Simulated assay, not measured.
Amino acid sequence: MKVTVDEDKCCGAGQCVLLAPEVFDQRDDDGIVVLLDAEPREPLQASVREAADVCPAAAIRLSTP
């Protein structure tokens, strides 16, 4: 799985960080998503998929390498 984020779309809701803190973080100044791991291991992929599904701004994209 390959993860990309569109910082311009991100609204800073933080659901991704709550669901997959090993993969996502937020900037302190404005809450915009920070991608920590663009290719998460299998055990993390279910939570990353859920984070992408619940993202209110659709700022997280998933693809297969």
Rank of each mutant, 00 (worst) to 15 (best):
D30G: 06
A51R: 04
R27F: 00
Q45T: 06
C11T: 13
A58V: 10
K9E: 03
E42K: 03
R61C: 10
G12L: 06
V23Y: 07
C11L: 13
Q26N: 03
V48S: 02
E22W: 06
R27I: 00
V5T: 14
P40M: 12
V17N: 03
V23F: 05
D8S: 14
A46W: 01
D29A: 08
E42I: 00
D30V: 09
D29G: 02
Q26S: 13
L18I: 10
K9I: 04
D6G: 04
A13C: 11
P56M: 11
D29H: 08
C11M: 15
A52G: 13
V3D: 14
C55G: 09
C11N: 13
P56T: 08
D6A: 07
D30Q: 11
A57C: 06
P56V: 09
L44Y: 13
G12A: 03
C10G: 00
A58C: 04
M1H: 13
D29L: 02
T4P: 01
I32T: 15
P65Q: 03
Q45K: 03
E42W: 02
R41Y: 01
V5M: 07
C10Q: 00
G31K: 00
L35M: 06
Q45H: 05
A20N: 08
E50D: 15
P65F: 11
R61Y: 14
G31C: 08
A57D: 04
A20S: 15
A13T: 01
Q45E: 09
T64Q: 12
D29Y: 10
C16Y: 13
V23I: 15
C55L: 04
A46R: 09
P43E: 15
G31D: 05
D53K: 12
D6M: 09
C16M: 11
A20M: 06
P56E: 02
K9R: 15
S63Y: 05
D30K: 00
E50W: 01
R49K: 15
A38I: 06
V23P: 02
Q15E: 12
A13I: 01
S63E: 15
L19H: 12
E22L: 01
A51W: 04
I32M: 04
R27E: 02
D28H: 08
P21H: 12
R61L: 12
V17A: 07
A38K: 00
D53H: 11
V54T: 13
M1R: 11
A59S: 14
D6E: 07
P40Y: 13
A57M: 10
A20D: 11
P21Q: 13
